[in-house]
Nucleic acid binder design. Structure first.
Length: 464
RNA sequence: GGCCCCAUCGUCUAGUGGCUAGGACAGCGGGCUUUCAAUCCGCAAGCCGGGGUUCGAUUCCCCGUGGGGCCGCCA
């Protein structure tokens, strides 16, 4: 049987980083098996805006290169279907109307908490046959087993046992007739033909409830995989204050989708010592049985490292295209290759890369004070002036970094100085700072005229 | 509070009834270099604690401890 997995977010308006990981796991497993990966929006609570939410999710999927099969299923559009199953259960005596008010329910809960028990419905209307109280719209509850144990095998955690009395007769339809989460999830998972349900382990306790529904309706159980959560660096639940939780924020911060996916796949899953995985490798190697049981902490260092790795390995033409969103348009630059080769080793994100490029392309508007103190001293002025003269009278072509390097070598030899004597002041003259790509590269990129112009401008500021 | 889940370097993780417990990121040191990076080499860093079982436990069992999750007419 073909593997069918799904991603079933509630419409929050954005895709959470943790959601992307479980979606990725599900997607990989489907693709690995040539199966299907379905998308469903859990919007039984009608207050939420599912159209917008879906758009946000698809946008994020597009960005990372994930897709889904078939049509998106909206639970809000399937209420008739759910109603049919509710009626069926009612008719078969597997569900019943409960006339307990919210106030009564709250009171019961408080009592139980005070006694140190797990709050749960006491089943008082389970076998009720009298006259229902006036003016109360009932909810529908499903009959859960009253004794024994609900057992299932989790593909990651192994056998899970929950005592039946831990699962109460939970509500499957609200007093306004709308169905509730655990009920519709079971029906949809069954009807959509899910074979493997991969989800966060915050759903672990929902599984026995859903099994109650599966059994009542005679549906076949899928395999369940409950993936441990991603916590923050302090081991607490990941929240907005821990940094970006919205997937698209990573795009804005200059991360490559390959890096983010590679980072996420290794959070909770591994394949020996391998760290770098292409999408193809992930698909080929992923198996949910290799997912870790324990929760992991989110620490962005490795993501940054991966991003640097993928930037270094991205073709320059593509980088140029991506950089447009970061305010750098160098697609038509005639030294494109040289420019990116000189900078891509230095930028861990596209944002940093854009900064590096701007540093070279734009003449410095000011010179770093420390750099000036260190570089513009002694005979620096004289050396720079000589260098200009040498560039102006140089007879060979000046195109490649090596061409400029030859000029520098000639200067160093003639004046019998070390490379640093010219290198440092030259660097400050070109970009205003003591860091950055090699001066040979930078001169080749901006060309001889611009080079001379920048040096002249710098020389004018040196007082000695 | 009840129930459930989890536990290897700071972080992500590999691994086994017997290994010098492996890799990666971060950290530190060094090489390369006109700078900063990149890169290369090296160093430091871990089996939560206590009981068992066993010739031998990081590994299997139990109990602690710690962390997480769930306990809605939310999903």
């Amino acid at each position: 049987m073909a593997v069918v997995t799904r991603f079933a977010p509630s419409p929050t308006g954005y895709l959470h980083i943790g959601g992307l990981r479980t979606a990725l796991f599900s997607w990989l497993w489907a693709r690995h098996n040539d199966g299907k990966f379905l998308l469903r929006i859990e919007d039984t609570d009608r207050a939420r805006n599912s159209e917008e939410a879906l758009e946000a999710i698809i946008k994020a999927f597009d960005w990372v290169g994930m897709n889904y099969d078939g049509d998106v299923v909206y639970q809000s559009k399937r209420f008739d279907l759910y109603k049919k199953y509710i009626d069926q259960l009612l008719e078969e005596g597997k569900a019943y109307r409960c006339y307990m008010s919210k106030e009564e329910l709250d009171a019961l809960r408080e009592e139980q908490m005070a006694r140190g028990e797990r709050p749960r419905y006491d089943g008082r209307y389970r076998d009720f046959e009298g006259t229902p109280p006036e003016g109360v719209e009932p909810v529908i509850r499903i009959k859960a087993p009253r004794e024994g144990t609900i057992t299932f095998v989790d593909g990651i955690k192994g056998e899970i046992n929950i005592a039946a009395d831990e699962v109460d007769d939970f509500i499957i339809a609200r007093s306004d007739g709308t169905p509730t989460y655990n009920f519709v999830v079971s029906i949809d998972d069954a009807l959509m033909g899910l074979t493997d349900v991969i989800r966060g382990d915050d759903h672990l306790y929902n599984t026995p409830k859903q099994i109650v529904v599966y059994n009542a309706l005679g549906f076949k159980l899928p395999k369940f995989y409950h993936v441990a959560m991603i916590n923050n660096e302090q081991g607490k639940k990941l929240s907005k204050r821990d940094g970006a939780t919205d997937v698209m924020e990573y795009k804005a911060m200059g991360y490559l989708p390959e890096a983010l996916l590679n980072f996420l796949v290794r959070l909770g899953w591994s394949h020996g010592d391998q760290e770098i995985f292409s999408l193809e490798e992930m698909i080929a190697l992923f198996d949910p049985k290799d997912i870790n049981k324990s929760a992991s902490s989110y620490s962005p260092d490795k993501l940054l490292w991966l991003n640097a790795h993928y930037i270094k390995n991205t073709p320059n033409a593509k980088l140029a295209e991506l950089l447009k969103e970061f305010g750098v348009d160098i697609a038509d630059h005639d030294r494109l290759e040289m420019l990116l080769d000189a900078t891509k080793e230095r930028g861990k994100t596209l944002v940093e890369l854009a900064e590096q490029i701007n540093l070279i392309l734009n003449a410095p508007t000011q010179y770093d004070a420390k750099a000036v103190k260190k570089a513009f001293k002694g005979e620096a002025k004289e050396i720079l002036v000589d260098f200009i003269a040498m560039l102006q009278t140089w007879e060979k072509p000046l195109h490649l970094p090596s061409d400029y390097h030859a000029v520098l070598e000639a200067l160093v030899a003639e004046k019998e100085i070390g490379f640093g004597k010219i290198g440092m002041p030259l660097r400050v003259a070109l970009v205003g700072a003591l860091t950055g790509p090699g001066v040979d590269e930078m001169m080749a990129i901006i060309g001889v005229d611009e080079t001379i112009e920048r040096i002249e401008k710098a020389v004018a500021t040196i007082e000695v």
